[in-house]
Design a protein around this nucleic acid. Structure first.
Lengths: 209, 209
DNA sequence: CGGCAATTTGAAGGCGCTCAAAAGTAGTGG
DNA sequence: CCACTACTTTTGAGCGCCTTCAAATTGCCG
């Protein structure tokens, strides 16, 4: 099976996406692997709906999520012939696949901007992980997700606290404590476990300095 | 002046590099700025000799070095029209410049591998900053520099402890303490301040897991 | 309603940071 | 050659933030 053992081909989505790009879509339930470290499947992926986590593991199980990808975003670029990371669906997710063969053609010029955006993102994330404390990291995360969801004050988080912790280099407990602290300060509200309302955007901005 | 206020044009180097690429070189003394955050100078840079640090600053002065670039390596790729980072010469350094105009032509296809290598590097660095402790970070750093200097056991560090700290997300003191600890364990020797001899490579490898 | 997983909250400890001072290094000029 | 200065690096002591371990609570789905 081309796109991970849990990948389920979805004819309806195929037809939908075919109208826009001519490429088929694949559906992944929550937790399904899209590709693994060492996989040789080349290609580029676009999130149609849902969310994806890109991560790496240490031998003892420590995990670092290097990026989340939301609807519309492109991922899967690789250096060399094999993937260096894992990609998993965070929730029910549809992925549009662009074949490697087409990359050699006209798309080559469009690939560079994608790579550069990812690079800038990763480098900015380095600043967060290297030089910011827990509350600053969470603030940066919320601002980032907010912007990528259209800038509305109401945020829907597809990922768990564990995912957020592994993205921000924090423990689950610390993430939870920071959320509580921001709530107590009146900076955010938590209408439900996976949604956040930003009450004082400026307070968040001030935290990331 | 095209490449930072401290850039010194060096005719002799120009002639040398012209033989290989037809592009001129610029010399930068230690600490000289190559480009700054917000600069609109496009273009690609190659280190001829010396070393470069790429970094970002927080409002209160905290600094995160996202990458070091040694002789032969290419840097300066940017998303959009302005640089998002600072680039400085760490020591006496010569930089070969490739003009933006030439990038639009034949080089476009060669740019993608450069961007992808940087991306993979940054993402691997995220794992170090997010999920590894002090001794593991230093071990990863030494292995990386060692590989990039040809894999010899003797390493020459162009950068200060402060630079290493700002690259690894550690304080100067912690970097120094870890070096001492590795020396006491017999893993490395420190023939001088800026050189490291790796006595037990396997011990270092084991640390990064 | 019951069971399981995710999240929250609490308590204690450790790793790395800050502050401080000593030791080492390099450059300069007498 | 040596004295002097300025800077980097090393080492020490104490503290604080985050982690770990543990338990309570909440939310979800059958």
């Amino acid at each position: 099976m081309p796109f991970g053992q849990h990948g389920i081909f979805c004819p309806e989505l195929t037809r939908v996406s075919a109208r826009t790009s001519g490429m088929p879509s694949t559906f992944f339930p929550a937790g399904a692997e899209i590709y693994a470290q060492g996989d040789t499947k080349g290609g580029l992926y676009q999130v149609e709906f849902g969310a994806v986590r890109i991560y790496r593991l240490l031998a003892d199980g420590r995990r670092q999520i290097s990026a989340f990808h939301l609807a519309g975003e492109i991922f899967g670029l690789q250096d060399g012939s094999t993937h260096h990371f894992f990609a998993e669906a965070i929730c029910a997710t549809a992925i549009r696949v662009m074949r490697t063969t087409s990359l050699d053609g006209d798309l080559a010029g469009e690939l560079l901007p994608v790579a550069l955006r990812s690079l800038v993102r990763a480098q900015e994330h380095l600043l967060v992980l290297g030089r910011q404390n827990a509350i600053e990291r969470v603030a940066a995360f919320l601002i980032d997700i907010c912007d990528r969801q259209g800038g509305l004050r109401q945020i829907e988080l597809p990922m768990s606290r564990a995912d957020i912790g592994d993205y921000l280099g924090l423990s689950i407990e610390t993430v939870s404590r920071v959320f509580s602290r921001l709530r107590q300060k009146g900076v955010i509200r938590l209408p439900s476990l996976r949604s956040v309302e930003i009450v004082k955007p400026q307070a968040l901005e001030d935290l990331v300095a």
